[in-house]
Design a binder for these strands. Sequence first.
DNA 1: CATGAATGAGTTTTCATTCAT
DNA 2: AATGAATGAAAACTCATTCAT
Lengths: 217, 217, 217, 217
Amino acid sequence: MAVLRTRGGDAAPPPGPPAVGSAEDSVPRRLLAHATRLFAEKGFDRTSVQEIVHAAGVTKGAMYHYFDSKDDLLAQIYARVLRLQMTRLEEVAGRGGPVADRVYAAAADVVVTTIANLDDAAIALRSMHQLSAAKQREVRAERRRYHELFRSLITEGQDEGVFTGGVPADIVVDFYFGSVHHLSAWYHPGGRLSPEEIGGHYARLLLDALRPDPARR
Amino acid sequence: MAVLRTRGGDAAPPPGPPAVGSAEDSVPRRLLAHATRLFAEKGFDRTSVQEIVHAAGVTKGAMYHYFDSKDDLLAQIYARVLRLQMTRLEEVAGRGGPVADRVYAAAADVVVTTIANLDDAAIALRSMHQLSAAKQREVRAERRRYHELFRSLITEGQDEGVFTGGVPADIVVDFYFGSVHHLSAWYHPGGRLSPEEIGGHYARLLLDALRPDPARR
Amino acid sequence: MAVLRTRGGDAAPPPGPPAVGSAEDSVPRRLLAHATRLFAEKGFDRTSVQEIVHAAGVTKGAMYHYFDSKDDLLAQIYARVLRLQMTRLEEVAGRGGPVADRVYAAAADVVVTTIANLDDAAIALRSMHQLSAAKQREVRAERRRYHELFRSLITEGQDEGVFTGGVPADIVVDFYFGSVHHLSAWYHPGGRLSPEEIGGHYARLLLDALRPDPARR
Amino acid sequence: MAVLRTRGGDAAPPPGPPAVGSAEDSVPRRLLAHATRLFAEKGFDRTSVQEIVHAAGVTKGAMYHYFDSKDDLLAQIYARVLRLQMTRLEEVAGRGGPVADRVYAAAADVVVTTIANLDDAAIALRSMHQLSAAKQREVRAERRRYHELFRSLITEGQDEGVFTGGVPADIVVDFYFGSVHHLSAWYHPGGRLSPEEIGGHYARLLLDALRPDPARR
DNA sequence: CATGAATGAGTTTTCATTCAT
DNA sequence: AATGAATGAAAACTCATTCAT
């Protein structure tokens, strides 16, 4: 019911530089930002609405003015991260060049993006079950589309013979995204390796695992 | 402190009804079994003590007689699964033979074991944050020992030159166990592939990813 | 104090769209109409201001422009129905003719009128306690005037000897209006009997109950 | 789920006189008593669980130990009053003697009983709509059985010719019980007339209304 | 006239845990 | 070893109302 409405387009914007700062600090945005952090830190169920609104400096009523429920908050966080990841994958997959390069780029990019949004990743990892059944279906459908796109890159390489056909492509996808989703469980900012280095290693491992084995065929 | 007393294995069974059944169906065991199932299905926070004791057919008082708290239930579930996995890894790692074979066996075995205890895996994946800080430290330490052991197999292979040294061993370990932990998110009993086949594929992917690249060295 | 301003009946209608439609569909009228329906359906406390303004297609601000409060809505509904019933009774009581005929006409008419405004009756039956103490006093006073007028008809008949004096007139009034108020609890439009038939039966029962008993005097 | 359990029959009762006082003051009974009073005074929706438990001197948890919900409290109050009234009507209807005497006795008795349980009557009058749909069906079914029984007495008299056949029996029943239900709206203890006198008047009015009219047949 | 964001006090209900028996 | 009544704190959510614009 509650919808995140942007101000009607006809209202005259204040003169001067675009009010990026004030837009970023709008009440719903602040709520989403703090909810994301808290959900990632303590889990959805362990985070009370009270804590979220306190952190965002608003009242409960204000939150329920913008969001239907606590679940709605979670659903919107999910929607954002899924949209982001899908966009990036589509961009990478749409590039030209050898399929191995595209897979490498996609694999490395999803690692970097995941690390850049580690809170979202942590939430995605642990909190999907708290969504309503309907929302879960939506999320799963979106994730499936994502996986399908990635899988199509794998099968493309297998058909071309640049990837081994010894392992089903969907197993490869689940295998790799398991690793990626788990980044939030062990990665800590400021670690020995940069996100890009980890992305490189992960993509390397995936590509090497897919190298066709001359001995085995 | 309530303690989980297992009946001493050598003690003469009490007369009357068959001892095996009553040992397997002892109140604490029933409680643990139902708690495991419910925690996996609905998450720790969404499962009430009331539901657990109802499912196990006992009263709350009985539960609090055997367990200190709801958290204690979770901690004991964790302890059991960690013990189990460590035991299996130690067994496999202790075998003789080429290191690649041992890594393959360990990698495949952890997949099969995880699938055989999918509820435990689901709990481990999502519920660690519900443990007390102290328990979390314990669990993490135990897991670290497990990872260390697995990592030592990887470095052994790298030192021997049978595995590539291009990726740090601890990255490899996190990479692989991410995939394994994530099994509970997509595996469904009765799927197209048997647990053993999935284990084979996963181990194969790992081993292939570790193949030394003649071109790159 | 927000006041319900009805357009003065003689004032020239504003030019433009037809005035009749806009008068009938004026915002306060729409609000009252939808509030009446909702209060009757779900009760005063179970109906939120939000629902009322949504049904009427306006915003909360608009409602608070025309009405002081949610209670004010209820009070105005009450005021309307009381005014209506009093007007009708005064009309009937003021006719000439035998008192028995006037009582019959009044008794039958109040039934028909009540059925014609069943929502109002349902509200009157169940929601008086939600009014403020002051409003309750007003309503009760108005109702008492109504009952007094009806009672005066009864006593007139008793004094003339056409009605039995065996039952106090105020008991008769409460007896009869109990029946009438309760119409909203069982009457459904489209039932076997028409409102007029029910009015006839009710009035008949009252008149017969009041017949002087030759045996008992 | 929560059920009002009486202590297991095997428990040895304390010696001495039956613990009537303590039974009457059991927590669930106290809750029901105070809820009844408050619901009658202020209406179901205007009475908070907080007020009820405060009046009964227990905590909210205790209330939810014995009752499933606030609605359950209301449902149990309803169940009690329906049971009571049905029992009394069955007793009166089952007596022998002329049907007019039985109708008179039943009509007078229901007035006296209603006045003796005026709070219950007030609740029944105004709060049925707050019950869940399922409970409402139950209550309506029970009430229908009650009305059926009363109606059968009327038709019996009509068939015998001691009551007029000019008004359908079910109209008579609704007519009369409207009056009865409305007692809670105007009766005040300590009024001019005793409950028995009011019962007598009401029953008299009913019987007189039913007298066959020699002129009209 | 009318909007819609925001408030803050209030609602019912849940739940892990304790304790006398 | 086990019961079940009772607690008290906290949860999510609702709602009539206000107010700057």
